[in-house]
Design a protein around this nucleic acid. Structure first.
Lengths: 114, 114
DNA sequence: AACACATGTTCATGAATCCTGAACATGGTT
DNA sequence: AACCATGTTCAGGATTCATGAACATGTGTT
């Protein structure tokens, strides 16, 4: 992958999560669907980007995952050639209690339409 | 005002509210602050656009109120030369229970920084 | 080693959206 | 009528978004 090891992946600390940034990250159907899938394999599940079968191009997917990571919604780590994603539910629940409880079912509803 | 009576204000029905659209509307600090102010005068309070003293230009304000209205977050009605705004808390609570309870305090926090 | 393949990222381009000041429209006031 | 207050619309420039093509890296195969 491109410069994986060169620049470390940026993950904001729990205390630095911003509400409006998180909402913006969740306000896209594709990203909300990603969050719902990750919530369903939480807490120990990690899913590679490819496993989502999203209806957008590869580069757009890459952008969506980046938005979620930089907002602090997901965590990403590299394992071999794959980038594994997991939900930062603990941090989100601590900072914005109840938000994921509302958002995840909505994401599942989007998944159901695909 | 410009063509106020010509085209009626668009207000989506409660059933047509979309989660991602509402989140997008709430994901901006200025709009979140507007929502918080309206929540504090709910249920019978109506505030004209000018009363908010927002740190953006008049035309940008107009755009923000339009986004909120078209997302179904606020209701607007014209009274004389002023456009009065109120929060659609009943509809939002019915469709997305708990969302405003989370968002409003965050909006108040933004207000406190101005 | 060398080659091919799978997984993701980056870059350049075009499309869509956002912010602003200037001009406009409407209602109320003197 | 003239004037002011409240908001909207329009055109522009700037920022953001989606995509295909090219690239980079890790794994497996010969």
């Amino acid at each position: 992958m491109a410069s994986r090891t060169a620049t470390a992946l940026v993950h904001p600390d729990r205390a630095d999560l911003e509400f409006t940034t998180v909402l913006a990250a969740l306000s896209d159907p594709v990203r909300l669907a990603i969050v719902a899938r990750l919530a369903d394999v939480w807490p120990d599940g990690e899913l590679a980007c490819t496993t989502f079968a999203l209806p957008v191009s590869k580069s757009t997917q890459s952008g969506h995952f980046k938005v979620l990571r930089e907002a602090g919604v997901i965590r990403q780590r590299d394992e071999g050639t794959r980038r594994l994603n997991s939900l930062r539910r603990d941090d989100l629940d601590a900072r914005f209690p109840g938000l994921l409880d509302i958002a995840v079912p909505q994401g599942r509803a989007i998944l159901a339409t695909w």
